[in-house]
Computed example of a mutant assay.
Amino acid sequence: MDLKIKDVAELLQVSEKTIYRWIKENKIPSMRINWQYRFNRDAINEWVLKNNISVAEPIFDETESTKKADIVECLRKGGIHYKVAGSTVEEILKNAVALINAPPGLDKETIVWHLLKREAMMTTALGSGIAIPHPRTPLISDISCESVSMCFLNGPVDFKALDNMPVSVLFIVLSANQPRHLQILSQISHLCRKDGFMELIKRQALREEIFDYAGKEKKSWEHHQV
């Protein structure tokens, strides 16, 4: 579903002038059709979650598919990896994907190509030294193959983040559909707003420490949703 300037302004609770400014500064995903700006709803949803922006309405439905997305399970499938080498975005993504647990039947060259294509559209940097690389469209259909691969970089790399901070950790997300992708992205964003989790990132904590913390946070937000 495509949105107009007015729709996005109302959703984000800002003026239309602000939306035009964000377009000019390439801060918001948009496209131009017949001399008018249009916005893909899924792209805006993802952008909102990535940037932790308040909206005037829920951005995705709590369907059965979104409720079952499990960040801890996804992290265990994708794995936590350390000392990923590289000095450019392309080098980092190639070396990171070489380490991750790829879903059956999906070759790593394909994953890298789609990650780079998405990155060329707009940075996946979340800010505070974190990026969430992912394909624009799902590469898998089986939800049991979904994964999040957490990759600590050997050194910070410029991902053109809005806060100008170089990236030192990646969360590579492979999801089965857009609703589940948004749910996983929301859970990662939630974790990254926690001082305790950011401290684990800062000291590149052991895998089980990260799994344990994420598991406790998951139980906490599930409790508050009951």
Rank of each mutant, 00 (worst) to 15 (best):
69 A>F: 02
74 C>V: 04
72 V>K: 05
22 W>S: 07
224 H>T: 01
125 A>G: 12
174 L>A: 13
191 L>T: 12
209 E>N: 13
30 S>D: 09
8 V>W: 09
218 K>E: 08
198 M>C: 13
91 E>W: 02
129 G>F: 05
157 V>A: 00
33 I>S: 07
66 T>R: 12
224 H>Q: 10
59 I>S: 03
97 V>E: 09
115 L>H: 13
55 V>E: 03
27 K>V: 02
159 F>G: 09
195 D>C: 00
55 V>F: 02
140 I>H: 13
195 D>H: 07
50 K>Q: 10
176 A>V: 02
213 Y>T: 06
43 A>F: 05
101 N>L: 01
3 L>V: 01
191 L>V: 03
34 N>C: 04
130 I>K: 09
79 G>C: 08
127 G>D: 10
66 T>K: 04
41 R>T: 07
76 R>I: 07
188 I>C: 06
18 T>Q: 11
131 A>P: 10
118 R>E: 06
6 K>H: 12
70 D>K: 07
71 I>P: 08
65 S>G: 01
2 D>P: 00
21 R>Q: 12
60 F>E: 14
8 V>C: 06
25 E>D: 00
99 L>K: 15
99 L>C: 12
217 E>A: 11
35 W>N: 14
170 L>Y: 00
63 T>W: 03
26 N>V: 05
169 V>F: 12
16 E>T: 15
195 D>T: 05
100 I>Q: 11
186 S>P: 02
75 L>R: 11
152 F>S: 05
68 K>Q: 15
41 R>Y: 04
84 V>A: 05
104 P>H: 02
12 L>Q: 12
107 D>F: 03
